[in-house]
Structure formats: structure tokens, C-alpha cells
Design a protein around this nucleic acid. Structure first.
Lengths: 228, 228
DNA sequence: CTTTTGCTGATTGTCAACAGTTTAAGATTC
DNA sequence: GAATCTTAAACTGTTGACAATCAGCAAAAG
């Protein structure tokens, strides 16, 4: 019984209102409840969450630094809108980071980790066969998360997660296109195969290519920036 | 005359106390006036800067998100200390990002940009000949900054700058070792040569190697983590 | 009719005060 | 003398209030 109390206290102990609110706002952005360009009203948010404006302002300063919102002095904080150029830039960085993750993982991957990754790919196969995008997406997410985590560079994992969060500022999602599911999972299989072969260079190349193909699916084959 | 007024207004227009304080704290960390592990006293800082605690707390939440400080609930904000593992992780990421920058720049570099980069290398040569570390360091900084900026990915440039700021949390600096200056500039010359040859792969490799050699100079030839 | 000027309400920036927690020093016990 | 308990000072978390700024609209000037 005291477990609940303890865990609640533990939660309260290293989470201030600020961090709770920041996390809540991050999730609202991830779920698309806050759309790009929208303005956050401090008073309204404070009233809605039952807190004062102080913690909300602090949370917004954190979000600003992680690129999720834009703060304009005396005008407020706005959910950041990624234009085509910024999105393309982010994809380039993401490709390099995932490539690094694959290169790090390949030499040290364990058989158990390979099994886990294989499981994710098979999950995605099943989702694909059922045409179920809603269960494909989380599998896809966990597959990529696992690769960067197994790679052992915890900071890299955090950085990839941050970029992933920022990607939600894009309205169109690559995977929204049903046709992309099949080819995407083919690429996953290729990535997995190179990792299982303990081939750092091959894994790096496969992951970079995978991300850049995603970008192409969004921007067209040239990876060109739609709006300057 | 109105130029001064305009620029002053412009300054005041997009700089709140929070952003000014954050910038000031970043610079204090960069200059080493705040050393790793040290605690920031909100009251003392507020008194010293002549503001209230609100803007200071907001600035600290920004610094927290960019990894420069560590916030512990009810205990305060502490200048973050990079242990060996975290530093090594950061070097790995940095190597990948600079490699990307070089790969991006090589195909599009202009003759004028090559001239600028050459100028930096020659500046560093002069500083080296004079044994003047204090003028070698800024040249080194500008050389790397220029490469990521000329590469055209502004977000990548911002990310590299953020990582560079975070590196100042390390006490020992690679370039502190005088013997490293000469070899370091040899590497710069190799990087420049590959960029001038419009060779993306070569430039990427040269930049990655340069960063990883810096890491070795810090951690020993194996790039191994001194403290777990 | 268009442009400018002057309000009004809403919203943000900043501050000072209060409540709860941590820290550290002093008192007490063994 | 060492360890533990007590207590007060210091500090952080949070709040509500005040000042400054901005957006929108109506009235006046051209």
C-alpha cells in the first residue's frame, strides 16, 4: 500500500510543476492538439491547469530552447512552424545521427538485441498486412529508439528523441502515405540485416538512406525545399 | 543618429531580461567563471544583476534544456559536470555533425570561402609559430564555425554551437596541450584540402578524424572512458 | 474614402511576498 | 568525543499583483 504513496512522493520529489507542464505541453504537441503557429495563452493555460503563470512561463522557456516553440517578446509564445527548409535541415541531421547510431551498434550488438529488433520488424509486417497504420507507427518508433539505445550513446539517444519530438511540428507525416509502409519496412529489414552482420559501415549507410528516403517521400525525389 | 536609437530599440525589442540573463550565464560558463558542480544562488544572482528571481529562474530553465546546468528540485541549479563518459559521447556526436558539415560544404564551396578558410589556417600557423595559444584558439573556433556555416544547414550550425558551448563544461581542454597545436593545424590543412577538392567523402572523413583525434588527445589513444 | 490618432481590453514582463523544504549549526545524549 | 536530535536560517517553489506593451476599433483629420 505504501508503494503508491512512495511513488507519488517520489514523483513529486523530482518533478516540479514546471517539468510536469513542460512534459504535458510536449505531449500536446506530439498529439497534434497544439498546431503550428498557434499562440499559447499563459492566462488560459494557467487557469486550465490550475496553476499560476510562473511555472508555465518557465516551462515555455524550456520548450523554446528545445525548439518546440518560438517566443516573441511582448507578443507571446507560438508553436513553432517548420518550413520546408528547416524540415529538410532536420532530416539531414537526423540521417547523420541515426547513421552514427547504426555504426556504433553494429560492432557490439548482442543476439538478444537482434531478436528484439527482429520482433519489431515482424510486428510491423503484421501491421502492414492488416493495413493498420496505427499499430505500424509505434513499432516503427520503437525500432528506431531501440537502435539508438542499444548503441550505448545515451546522449545520442536523447538527441534523437528531441529531433523526433521536433518533427511533430510538421503537418504532413511521411508515414501517412500507406504505400510507404511496405518500402519502409523493407528498409528496416535491410538495416537489421546489416546490424546483424556486425557491419558498421553498412548499417550506417542503410540508416542514413532510410532517413533520407523518408525525406524524399515528404519533399519529392530531389529532397528539394518546397518553400524557400 | 537615429541608427543608434533604432538599434537600441531593436535590442530591447527582442531581448527580454530572461534572454539577456541566459546569454550572460552562458558566457560566464564559457569564460570558466562558473565551474562545474557549482550551485547558482538565485537570490545572490538576482541581487547582483539587479533583477528579481523570476527572469533568473526562466533563464535557468533554458540552460537546463540546453544541457548546461542540472536542476534538482528544492535544491537548486548546478553547473553541469561532464564526466568522462558523457564527454566521450559528446565527441562522438560532434564528430558525426562536423563530418556532415564537411560533406555538405564540399560540393558547394565557393572560391571565396576557400580563401577565407585558408586565411584562418594561416592565422593559426602564425599563432603556432609564435607559440601563442591565446590567438590560436579563436582562429580554430572560427575555422570550424565557418565550415558549418558555409555548409548551408543553419540548424546544423546551431547544433554545433550548442555542443561547443557544452564542451566548456570540461575542465581540461584538448588544445591546452601545446604539442597538439601543430598536429591540429596539419589536420586543418588536410580538411581544407579535401574541401577545396570538392570531395564530400574525403572532407567528411577528415573532419570526423579531426574531432576523434581531439578526443584521443583528451582521453588517451583508445578514446576510452576514464571514469565509468 | 483613406489615413492617422487616441482609446480600451487583453496579454505579457517583472516584481515582491508567502509556503514548504533543505541545510547547517548548536544542543543533547550516550 | 561521536552520534543524534532540535531548531533556526537560507533557499527554492509558487502565487498574486502591478507595470508595460500590444491588438483592435472607433473617431477625427486630410
Amino acid at each position: 500500500m505504501s508503494l503508491d504513496i512512495d511513488s507519488a512522493l517520489q514523483l513529486r520529489r523530482n518533478q516540479s510543476l514546471t517539468s510536469i507542464i513542460r512534459h504535458e505541453l510536449e505531449q500536446m504537441i506530439e498529439r497534434g492538439e497544439l498546431s503550428a503557429g498557434e499562440r499559447l495563452n499563459e492566462n488560459a493555460l494557467a487557469a486550465k491547469l490550475g496553476v499560476s503563470r510562473g511555472p508555465i512561463r518557465e516551462a515555455c522557456r524550456g520548450l523554446e530552447q528545445s525548439g518546440l516553440v518560438n517566443v516573441i517578446v511582448n507578443r507571446g509564445v507560438f508553436i513553432r512552424a517548420l518550413d520546408g527548409r528547416e524540415a529538410a535541415e532536420l532530416y539531414e541531421i537526423r540521417a547523420a545521427l541515426y547513421g552514427l547510431a547504426g555504426r556504433l551498434l553494429a560492432p557490439i550488438v548482442t543476439d538478444q538485441q537482434i531478436a528484439i529488433l527482429t520482433g519489431y520488424v515482424e510486428e510491423m509486417d503484421a501491421a502492414m498486412a492488416a493495413g493498420d497504420l496505427n499499430s505500424f507507427y509505434p513499432g516503427n518508433l520503437r525500432f528506431h529508439e531501440a537502435i539508438v539505445e542499444f548503441g550505448g550513446n545515451t546522449r545520442l539517444a536523447a538527441e534523437c528523441a528531441a529531433i523526433h519530438r521536433e518533427m511533430h511540428l510538421l503537418r504532413r507525416r511521411t508515414l501517412d502515405m500507406p504505400g510507404r509502409m511496405a518500402t519502409s519496412n523493407d528498409e528496416h529489414r535491410a538495416i537489421l540485416e546489416r546490424i546483424a552482420a556486425r557491419d558498421p559501415i553498412g548499417a550506417e549507410a542503410a540508416l542514413e538512406e532510410h532517413v533520407l528516403i523518408s525525406r524524399s517521400a515528404l519533399f519529392g525525389p530531389l529532397g528539394h525545399y518546397p518553400d524557400a
